[in-house]
Amino acid sequence: MRVFIYSSHPYEQPFLEKEAGQHEIIYTSQRLTLETASLANGFEAIAIFTADDASAPVLEKLAAIGIRYITLRSVGHDHVDLARAQALGIHVANVPEYSPYAVAEHAVAMLMVLNRKIIASRLLMQLQDYRLDLLTGFDVHGKTVGIVGTGKIGMAFARIMHGFGARTLAFDPVHNPEASALQISYVPFDTLLQQSDIISIHCPLNNHTKHLFSWDAFNKMKPECILINTARGGVVHTEALLHALENDRINGACLDVYENEKAIFFQDLREQTIQDVQYTRLLALKKVLITGHQAFLTKEALTGIARTTMQTIASWESGLNVPNELTSFQPLYSVK
């Protein structure tokens, strides 16, 4: 099958080519939009990433040029109108898991860098300023860690926190049976907000989780709490987060995702002035650590993404069942 790959980046191409098998794959660095959909003319399948637009109008154009299959090189699928795809007869599948450890470990790395003032320490060392006065952090051991979403990534994060000796709370409508072995206590959302010293988000973005962390949530959190988001930017209301940070309502934020990231991330903008005021405010805060949606970026994860992407295409081509095919009816939380 011929596969057209949108939003292709050099870091992933060797992994896709290794797993391609007999499939013919063509790359473009351009994102899928209404204007670029016609680039896939003559193909049966496309592969897209999180910054691509698979809304109803785009899907209709893709269907008109003969696209029957869309594979997502991601777990999240909030950028796809699944109901419209189903109505058009377009099959859609994601990568339900690749390396949950990649994202979980990145979340922990961000926490420790922010907590232990690693970036500030390096800057001071380069200035030959060896005072420690501004570098005090806290032990994660003994702290209460709240985890929102206990799918594979959330559970991988929980295991690391268990190793640190932290107490773990969780909020998820679907209780993971593995949680009891880690002494994870499922609690109401408000309880998690009120008791947690650290909160890490591992849920998908959908109608139930959009702006889950907003004004009311931040008002209930501890002033010393650090929020980690390696899931989807839209789960957090950015203006509410900025207000909480700027008014010392919370202690800090580690963000690998950002609500309006599609206009910024995965691009070279060195010669441009970013006009996003909220983003520049976040970037200016010393209590905020931002990375550019790179939590998934490990060799193991890229191998898993490429392999599942190509195996999905092969299964569709052979008429086999595709267990990771998506419908418009998806679970609320436990998919990350």
Rank of each mutant, 00 (worst) to 15 (best):
Cys254His: 06
His211Leu: 07
His208Phe: 12
Leu242Ala: 03
Glu239Asp: 10
Glu239Tyr: 00
Leu255Phe: 12
Glu259Met: 14
Asp248Gly: 06
Glu261Arg: 06
His243Glu: 09
Ser214Thr: 02
Cys203Phe: 03
Val257Pro: 15
Lys262Phe: 11
Val236Lys: 04
Met221Asn: 03
Ala244Arg: 01
Gly252Leu: 06
Asn247Thr: 15
Lys262Ala: 14
Ser214Glu: 07
Tyr258Ile: 14
Leu227Lys: 02
Asn229Pro: 15
Asp216Gly: 06
Cys254Ala: 14
Gly234Asn: 07
Lys222Glu: 08
Leu245Ala: 03
Glu261Cys: 10
Ser196Phe: 09
Ile199Arg: 04
Leu227Tyr: 00
Ala240Gly: 03
Ile250Ser: 03
Leu245Asp: 00
Cys225Thr: 13
Gln195Arg: 10
Asp197Pro: 09
Ala244Glu: 02
Asp216Ile: 11
Glu224Asp: 14
Lys220Glu: 01
Val257His: 09
Phe218Gln: 02
Leu241Ile: 01
Ala217Arg: 02
Lys262Gln: 12
Leu227Met: 11
Lys220His: 08
Trp215Asp: 14
Ile198Tyr: 00
Ala263His: 14
Gly233Pro: 15
Gln194Ser: 11
Ala253Ser: 06
Gly234His: 11
Thr209Lys: 05
Ala217Thr: 00
Ile228Met: 10
Val236Met: 06
Lys262Gly: 08
Thr230Lys: 03
His211Met: 07
Glu246Tyr: 00
Glu246Pro: 05
Lys210Tyr: 10
Thr238Gln: 03
Val257Arg: 12
Gly233Asn: 12
Glu261Phe: 08
Ile226Gln: 13
Ile228Ala: 01
His243Trp: 11
Pro204Ile: 09
Asn207Lys: 10
Arg249Trp: 02
His243Ser: 13
Cys203Ile: 08
Ala240Glu: 11
Asp256Ala: 07
Leu255Ala: 13
Cys225Phe: 00
Leu245His: 02
His237Glu: 15
Leu205Glu: 13
Asn229Tyr: 12
Glu246Leu: 03
Glu224Gln: 15
Leu205Tyr: 09
Ile250Val: 13
Glu259Ser: 14
Arg232Ala: 08
Asn219Val: 01
Asn219Glu: 12
Ile264Ala: 09
Gln194His: 02
Val235Glu: 10
Leu205Gly: 05
Asp197Trp: 04
Cys254Arg: 01
Val235Ile: 15
Thr238His: 07
Glu239Thr: 11
Pro223Ser: 07
Thr238Asn: 12
Ala253His: 08
Trp215Ser: 15
Leu227Cys: 07
Ile198Asp: 06
Leu212Phe: 04
Lys222Trp: 05
Pro204His: 08
Glu224Pro: 03
Leu241Arg: 00
Gly252Asp: 06
Asp197His: 07
Leu212Asn: 04
Glu259Gly: 15
Phe213Trp: 04
His237Met: 02
His202Leu: 01
Glu224Cys: 10
Thr209Ile: 05
Ala240Trp: 09
Thr238Phe: 04
Phe213Ser: 01
Asn260Ala: 15
Asn247Gln: 11
His211Arg: 10
Met221Lys: 09
Ile264Gly: 11
Asn247Glu: 12
Ala263Gln: 15
Leu241Tyr: 04
Asn260Gln: 14
Ile198Asn: 00
Cys203Tyr: 03
Arg232Leu: 15
